[in-house]
C-alpha cells in the first residue's frame, strides 16, 4: 500500500515538473509572439483612422532638399520656396529646382517672408534679415540670449517674434527696435499667458493684417491687435478631428487667403484646416500618411492655395492640393 502511494507520488511529481516546464515555455513564447496590437495596449489607432470622405486634399508633389535636418519653410508671392536646414537656407523655384543655397553659420529654426519680400530668419536667439538674393541686411538679438525663436511673422511695419523660452511674443519695428511684449502672464486679468510645454510656438498674420498666435498648452488660437490687445480667441480641445489633443498642439499653423487656419500636430500627427471661427473644415493629411515618430511639421501656403508641409522625418517638402471633385 505504502509502496503504491510512493510510486503514485513520484509519478505525480514528475508530471508536475514536466507540466511546469511545458507551461512556462509556452507562456513565454506565446507572450513573445503575440501580435503587437494585442500586446501594446495603449493605442490611439482609432483616432488615427480618418474617414476618407473627410480628407479634402491630396498629395500632388514632393521635393527633397539636400539637407540632413529640416527646420523651417516659407513661400513667397512668386511661390518660391524657402527652406532652412542644417546651417543653410535653400531657395527652390516653384518647379522644385534649387535656385540657390546660402550658408548661415547657424541653424535657422524658422523662416518667413515679409510683404516687401525680405527674408526673416530666426537663428536661436537672433533675428536676421536678408534680401531675396541672400545678402545680409541686418540682425538683432531678440531681447535676451536665453530666447529661443520658434516663429517670426512680418507685417508692413511690424515684425513679430515668438520666443518659446520666455513664453512671449516680441513686437519689433523693421529696424529691430522692440516696440512691446505681447501676451505675457497677467495676474490682474488672470490671463495665464502662453503655456508652452515644448519648443513649439507658432504665429502668423492673417489677410486682414491681424496677428494670430497659437497657445499650444491650451489648444487656443489668440488674435491680437498690433497694439498688443487680445481681440478674439477660439479654443478646441478634442482628440478627434474637431480639435487638438495632447499637451501642446497644434505645433504649427499657417493662414489661408480666406482666413482659415491650416494646423499640424504632434502625437496624433495630422494636418487639418479649421475655418476662421475655429470650426473643423477638412483634413489635409491623415496620421497614416506620416511615418512613426514624425514631429515638427512646418506649414506654408502658396498663391494657388496649395498647402506645403515640411516633413523632417522623411526629409521632404510635401505639397497637397485640393481634391478636384
Amino acid at each position: 500500500m505504502g509502496k503504491i502511494l510512493t510510486y503514485v507520488g513520484i509519478a505525480l511529481a514528475v508530471a508536475a515538473v514536466l507540466a511546469g516546464i511545458i507551461f512556462s515555455s509556452n507562456r513565454t513564447s506565446s507572450a513573445v509572439n503575440k501580435p503587437p496590437e494585442a500586446a501594446i495596449l495603449y493605442n490611439i489607432d482609432d483616432y488615427k483612422k480618418v474617414d476618407p470622405a473627410l480628407i479634402g486634399y491630396t498629395e500632388v508633389r514632393q521635393i527633397k532638399p539636400a539637407f540632413r535636418e529640416l527646420y523651417g519653410m516659407a513661400c513667397d508671392a512668386d511661390d518660391k520656396i524657402y527652406v532652412t536646414g542644417d546651417e543653410q537656407l535653400a531657395i527652390f523655384d516653384p518647379a522644385g529646382d534649387e535656385i540657390s543655397r546660402i550658408d548661415l553659420g547657424h541653424e535657422a529654426k524658422c523662416v518667413t517672408l515679409s510683404p516687401d519680400q525680405l527674408i526673416y530668419l530666426g537663428l536661436n536667439h537672433t533675428v536676421a534679415v536678408l534680401d531675396r538674393n541672400g545678402k545680409a541686411l541686418r540682425s538683432w538679438v531678440a531681447e535676451s540670449e536665453s530666447a529661443v525663436i520658434t516663429s517670426v511673422a512680418a507685417g508692413e511695419r511690424d515684425v513679430f517674434v515668438a520666443d518659446a523660452m520666455n513664453k512671449v511674443v516680441l513686437q519689433y519695428d523693421p529696424a529691430g527696435n522692440l516696440l512691446r511684449r505681447i501676451g505675457e502672464k497677467d495676474p490682474e486679468s488672470e490671463r495665464p499667458g502662453f503655456i508652452i510645454p515644448s519648443f513649439y510656438f507658432d504665429l502668423a498674420i492673417d489677410p486682414d493684417g491681424f496677428l494670430w498666435v497659437v497657445n499650444p498648452g491650451l489648444h487656443t488660437f489668440e488674435n491680437y491687435t498690433f497694439e498688443g490687445k487680445l481681440r478674439a480667441s477660439w479654443r478646441k480641445t478634442a482628440f478627434d478631428l474637431e480639435g487638438f489633443g495632447g499637451c501642446c498642439n497644434p505645433t504649427h499653423m499657417a493662414i489661408l487667403p480666406d482666413g482659415s487656419f491650416v494646423t499640424s500636430e504632434k502625437g496624433l500627427v495630422r494636418v487639418k484646416i479649421h475655418d476662421p471661427t475655429g470650426q473643423f473644415r477638412t483634413v489635409v493629411a491623415a496620421p497614416n500618411q506620416f511615418a512613426e515618430g514624425t514631429v515638427g511639421l512646418d506649414l506654408a501656403v502658396d498663391s494657388r492655395g496649395q498647402i506645403l508641409v515640411l516633413d523632417p522625418k522623411t526629409g521632404m517638402i510635401r505639397i497637397f492640393a485640393k481634391r478636384s471633385s
Binding site: Y42, I195, H219, T237, F239, C248
Partner: peptide
Amino acid sequence: CGYCQLCGGYHRPGAKIQ
C-alpha cells in the same frame, strides 16, 4: 514635465473632460 493641465500620460486618449 510641463505640468500641463492636459496630460497625455494622465488622461486617457479621447477623454472629453480633463
